[in-house]
Design a protein around this nucleic acid. Structure first.
Lengths: 340, 340
DNA sequence: TAGCACCCTGAAAGCGCTTACTGAAAGCGC
DNA sequence: GCGCTTTCAGTAAGCGCTTTCAGGGTGCTA
């Protein structure tokens, strides 16, 4: 059963294709004919074929957004920002999840490119291996040459595109200072997959600031796992198994911190009584944990909004525009002064 | 700057358009020419135009998913299931958020229809007002006639399409029984927007089961708000302001329960010491609340997976297939026996 | 009333691709 | 070696739309 086409509508309204097209697109047409076309279209439940339309030159309205994992509150919040701006601009969003697989990420870019999406947004940490940046650039460059718009969030290396950069490094450093200020000297870190650049930024910022204060982080006090709740649980459990003697744990993401809470509880340790915990991101739920989590707040919605806005605003010279968004330490009850 | 087209590739490889197309699509072509075409395509960074392709008859690969709010963990989890199955089938998903606006929902269906998406999934409660179902049906029917596939999750009225139905009513009833079993007799309910059918199902199932046990729910013990964390906070606060004397609160969604926890804490009440709390959905985070939340567990991922599977499997007679997924009461520490 | 400028409609040319259909070359049996 | 089938490249016809271009009314000016 084929779809109703413009030709059907034109025939039903007894006008030419051109007139039907113009009437439907609000171009000047005698009111009389205009009404006849609209009536026919309604009667036939006509919906224009977006592909034909796109092919014939009309720009189309679905932007692509690629993130690592929609079920992660961090990405959900950023995507929420993207969608808000998209909705305001009457744009449809195609959201894809890569599950942190760089190959899948590239495959999605390729699909979006094939769709001739007017814009592609990449949300989330890049990968350390330069091979992926090269492969990505190979996809992105012809896309940009073809007039496509690209904006990325939280990924800065080697990609000459508009970027929204949360202050991962500075935020982690600020957190380190705050924690040092509370008197902590022995730290543990729940780190994420080392192939992600965000890990290097946050971990590096934290460690360097500690070092500047003369505090070193022993490798034994660092555990690496997935950026998930269960990853956090696992990493914390591992550290505990090693006989941890830290007074404060820094989880590279709030989601991991949630898992850490559970692991600590399962070991009969209280937060912050036995150990302080800090996270990063300020996803909405951490305010409702017991105790509320100290973290580095990122303006999550704004990250998405800004990225969408960048992709929407003209950039004639194709200069790389960078929008840095501040990270701010939020002290809550999960951290307390270190005991003497 | 126009895109590289198949014609460019054909010319570069010195073959006809048809041959280039065949080579790229893995049809039988002399190995010699085949290689030449692929080499040329790679050299030119050719990406086929999905629109032209779709127009020319090749089916295309992006299914549409419409949900109420991607930032809500419930939808995020369901969407995660959808994406998993979609990824396995090499499908791109276009995810849209309606923010619970029925007009926007219909607008999205229309856009997706225009895109000739092979399938459309509607995730989340429908609206009570039959007007919306009619408007939706008016969009969906021609889409189905045109060979489109539709599956819905958690929306059962009046829509003759494949459905995945969580046992909202039965689940709420089972929860009521469990709570009665704990000795509770005075209940309060944090309800959601009354225009959502899910509200009627859950609330109705709960209330009717209570009634069957001779327990009535006074209107004063019911507060209505948005299905959000803040909505839950607000509804709970309102109830508290009214001088609540319930021993147990049922929040229609877990997300609302999170807000209720906060409101209770702000009023100096402890859970379950002063009052028991139960939710619905079993979103991942509620296990990590303090205390862990008693709730009605829905297989969230599966809801999405099943819906995607339904939309993917042939349905020759276009019969309405219904897949009912069970809801299960999970008792955790947020509920305790009622004090005598 | 003739001449000119407008406005609006319809015919037709693509947009980039897939896929019959056509035709040439090659492989086979006798 | 001839006529047959088989294989595979090329030609061309759309898919459904937008838009340019041409042409024919109409209203205005002189």
């Amino acid at each position: 059963m084929p779809h109703v086409t413009l030709e059907d509508v034109a025939r039903a309204a007894d006008v030419s294709l051109a007139t039907a097209s113009r009437a439907l697109n609000g171009r000047r047409v005698t009111p009389h004919l205009h009404d006849r076309v609209l009536a026919a279209a309604a009667r036939l439940a006509y919906t224009p074929n977006a592909h034909a339309r796109a092919l014939a030159g009309a720009s189309h309205r679905s932007v692509g957004v690629i993130c690592h994992d929609v079920t992660d509150p961090y990405f959900a919040a950023v995507a929420g920002g993207v969608m808000r701006v998209a909705a305001d601009n009457d744009l449809l969003v195609m959201l894809a999840s890569t599950f942190r697989d760089p190959e899948r990420e590239i495959a999605y870019v390729s699909m979006l490119r094939a769709e001739r999406a007017p814009a592609i947004l990449l949300i989330g940490s890049g990968f350390e291996d330069p091979r992926w940046d090269r492969a990505l650039a190979a996809e992105l460059t012809p896309y940009l040459d073809g007039g496509g718009r690209v904006a990325v969030v939280s990924r800065h290396r080697n990609l000459k595109v508009d970027s929204v950069l949360p202050e991962n490094r500075a935020g982690a450093a600020a957190l380190a200072r705050a924690l040092l200020g509370l008197g902590h000297r022995r730290f543990a870190v729940l780190s994420g997959p080392s192939e992600l650049t965000t890990v290097a930024d946050r971990f590096g910022g934290f460690r360097d600031e500690l070092a500047a204060a003369g505090v070193t982080l022993s490798p034994a006090a660092v555990a690496e796992a997935e950026f998930t709740r269960d990853g956090g649980y696992q990493a914390m459990t591992e550290l505990l198994g090693r006989g941890l003697d830290a007074t404060c744990v820094f989880a590279l993401t709030d989601v991991m911190a949630v898992g850490a809470y559970a692991a600590l509880r399962d070991h009969g340790l209280s937060v912050p009584g036995d150990i302080s915990v800090a996270g990063f991101d300020d996803i909405p739920i951490v305010r409702d944990l017991t105790p509320p989590l100290t973290t580095v707040a990122l303006p999550l919605r704004q990250l998405g909004e800004k990225a969408m806005e960048l992709a929407l605003t003209e950039n004639p010279g194709r200069r790389r525009r960078i929008s840095r968004l501040p990270a701010e330490v939020v002290l809550r009850a999960s951290t307390s002064p270190a005991r003497a």
